[in-house]
Nucleic acid binder design. Sequence first.
DNA 1: AGCTCTGGCTTGTTTGTACAAGTTCGCCTA
DNA 2: TAGGCGAACTTGTACAAACAAGCCAGAGCT
Lengths: 245, 245
Amino acid sequence: MARYEQIASDLRDAIVRGDYPIGAQLPSEAELALRYSAARGTVRQAVALLAAEGLVGSRQGARRIVLGSERSQSFAELHSFAQWARSMGYRASGTVLSSRRRPCSPSEAVRLSLEPGEEVLDVLRLRRLDGEPVLVERTVYAGWIAPAVERLDPDCESVTQELYESVGLVFAYGEHLIDAVAAGSEDARLLGVRRGSPLLRQRRVTTTQEGRPVECSDDRYRAGSVTFSIRNSTAANPLVRRAGD
Amino acid sequence: MARYEQIASDLRDAIVRGDYPIGAQLPSEAELALRYSAARGTVRQAVALLAAEGLVGSRQGARRIVLGSERSQSFAELHSFAQWARSMGYRASGTVLSSRRRPCSPSEAVRLSLEPGEEVLDVLRLRRLDGEPVLVERTVYAGWIAPAVERLDPDCESVTQELYESVGLVFAYGEHLIDAVAAGSEDARLLGVRRGSPLLRQRRVTTTQEGRPVECSDDRYRAGSVTFSIRNSTAANPLVRRAGD
DNA sequence: AGCTCTGGCTTGTTTGTACAAGTTCGCCTA
DNA sequence: TAGGCGAACTTGTACAAACAAGCCAGAGCT
């Protein structure tokens, strides 16, 4: 763990613990540098981390201020349903309902950087939280990863983790589109809701560390089961609104 | 504009223009430093900006890779419906349907850091894109900003901009919760959809630069009119999933 | 009392240096 | 030919120093 991460972690703990309540000022960079025997640049890296998490705000000339005290989850927990569920104290389960290979559509070829007509793997999964069905996942995997996915246990809890352990695959980057849709008849049947009832849809494309697309997916959550949360500031905000297509 | 912002802007333009297509390698920091006659640290700040936007990814030891080429909007455009709409080439309009003062509820007191029972301003707005109603906005403003809000033109296009110009108020930080809900009868009537049809809901709390809460709001978008988009990486992702309450 | 202004404090930007750690690719060997 | 090894390259981390720019409180003035 890098020095600046240690410092960030220490400060984060202090904030979560309430040593610096919401609205309070953080010590100045100079003081922190002295306290941790680090250079000012290192301290700046640490507080930049906290600012990116939305925990503290900063303005030139004024002391940094504590804005929040909730710890936010890691990327892995965002990407992996199972890992997120576990960290929240839920028991996640899932079932593969269908899995078949087929040639990719033109739009999939673009999103996954494939040759037109190249083979992809189409998987339909139902996911549960504490036994309750909450998520219908329709995922399209690029052909090159298909064998590893097919080898997975159909009731495998965490696909992300299994793929990491079996072939060393790391999901590193992703783009997510979030909107609301009405439940289709299949969605309704699987999730146990009425047709036309609201679902929260998350469409995503995920790539490896090298920027190679792995999968794109259409995930639909039962309304009320899951909420997405974003903290943002003038400094950094990756969330954008887009016009409906 | 700082030097590192200029460099970031230049690189961003080059990426958007297609000089560095998706999957391509960016020049090394050393080369960029030479090209822009800047120190390596300055170049690093520039590319860190692009990485935060999700445009490029980086791994220790390997060249940086271009991950996307879409320009993402600024915070102002996320926060302000009107500014976002304008930047996307839409014509935004809006109407205040009701506006009244009342004592705040206990939960509002917590979210806006008010004394229990302190007065707040409750505003119901309908927003349109190119004349089509797409958004019902139920906003609760803290009492101290209420007079400025009441002075606004009921058909005012951009509340954010007007409040900045009239009282110098800057919305600096926000927390956003996104989920799907069924349209209530009022929602349905205002948006011209059937009751029970899916809406994308964004609940938010916004604060000033000093961390003082200004407003909390419940915004409901007609399904299909707007999509939220998030780019993330192992490095930074402010988006988290939360269990439904 | 209320206002202005100034000086000290704090964060923002930039440069330079050094080393650590990971990647890539060509060369050499079995 | 396949695999291993290592050198060169590239990004990550850390330190030090200097100046710019913005904030704030207290001194002084009206």
